[in-house]
Design a protein around this nucleic acid. Structure first.
Lengths: 155, 155
DNA sequence: TGACCAACCATAAAAAACCATGGTATCCCA
DNA sequence: TGGGATACCATGGTTTTTTATGGTTGGTCA
């Protein structure tokens, strides 16, 4: 499955087009759908995206963990999957962000793409600066509670 | 997974390129991505690096142990993955260190690669001299306090 | 016809590939 | 064992390609 790293800030032109970072494009190139899938996360004022198989896996997991007729599952599936969009690349590797998502995320002239492993986020450039600060201080507390991983050291 | 040993100091040219030690290169050669992945550790003024599967493992482990929307998971993922970069080798085995990382680590003209097993660090050559001194004296005190490990005997 | 959307073309900046070189350690053979 | 040849590695500069970005054109649907 695709893997996303690093942070990139690109410009949104007046037609709403944004270049998807080249490394993100090549990450999803192998996928069945040649583009990205975006949705509104529940907990942050931003857009989240991934390749198609990530959403398929998320769906499978919801059904697997809760069963197909569980109310919690249904509400989460509706909130995420029903609002999702497939965005194809134009010949230059750009996408058009849906207007409602852009508004919801407060994306104006500059969009920041944030690689988070199997998925990524898209923030308004200014909002992300503040968010990053929060996350870093939160991570300092949260990191020791998380399971250790390779290298034998603190990451 | 790749394994890194020894210490090497190489020159950084004015374009920010550094030769990755040959033994580090061959360590990651088997990996899917032909290059290294670097990120800013939380606790030291240096750069840390590993092969791609190290970060994939970290990411998948976070997503596996917690739901995909857990706040602790998200903050750590943001701190590490969003600040990470994939650095591909040029045909001569060099990488371009991102400017912000070079600044954050105080790397000027000479970069010191420090093998630490599953991962490695990159320091400014001068800063590393001081750091090494600290670590050595600290290790002498810390070693006896470590719990015994493998083989059944005292280390 | 007018608004919207998708492809096309152009350009400047940044990144990657290419080519050349000097030094060092290693191998081979007399 | 000595000396030359050789392979490898780190380094520097130049060229080519990619990427991000802006504008323009053509088509489509209401």
């Amino acid at each position: 499955m695709a893997f996303f790293l690093s942070t990139f800030t690109n410009k949104v032109d007046k037609k709403g087009r944004v270049s998807v970072p080249a490394s993100f494009r090549s990450a999803v190139a192998a996928s069945h759908f040649p583009g990205i899938v975006v949705y509104r996360p529940l907990n942050f004022p931003c857009i989240e995206g991934a390749d198609m198989s990530f959403l398929e896996q998320l769906s499978d997991r919801l059904y697997g963990d809760f069963g197909p007729f569980n109310p919690d599952q249904m509400s989460v599936a509706t909130a995420i999957l029903a609002g999702a969009s497939q965005l194809g690349f134009d010949p230059e590797g750009r996408v058009m962000l849906p207007a409602e998502m852009r508004d919801a995320a407060g994306i104006d002239t500059h969009a920041t793409f944030v690689g988070l492993g199997r998925k990524f986020q898209i923030w308004g450039a200014d909002a992300y600066q503040a968010h990053l600060k929060d996350q870093l201080s939160h991570a300092a507390e949260a990191a020791p509670k998380l399971p250790p991983f390779g290298g034998g050291g603190q990451a």
